[in-house]
Amino acid sequence: MLIVLAVFAVLIISDFLRFIRNKEPAKVFVIYTCLMATSLSISLLLAAGRRPSSPAQWIEAVFKMIGVLE
């Protein structure tokens, strides 16, 4: 858990410093934060041992609903 946080902290801080230095537009921050927040929350859940249902399962479910897969 701590390790996950540490790695993410390093990544986010280093990237943010770079963004600020290069004066990137706000949307960069927004998209970046969205992606990182998702990654962080999922990895925290994974680290806690609670694996949320994954996209692979959603896709499989969708295909089953449509009837492509039986």
Partner: peptide
């Protein structure tokens, strides 16, 4: 980063 997380998560 997201790819790495996803790769662990997905299966």
């Amino acid at each position: 980063t997201f790819c790495v997380v996803l790769s662990i998560w997905v299966h």
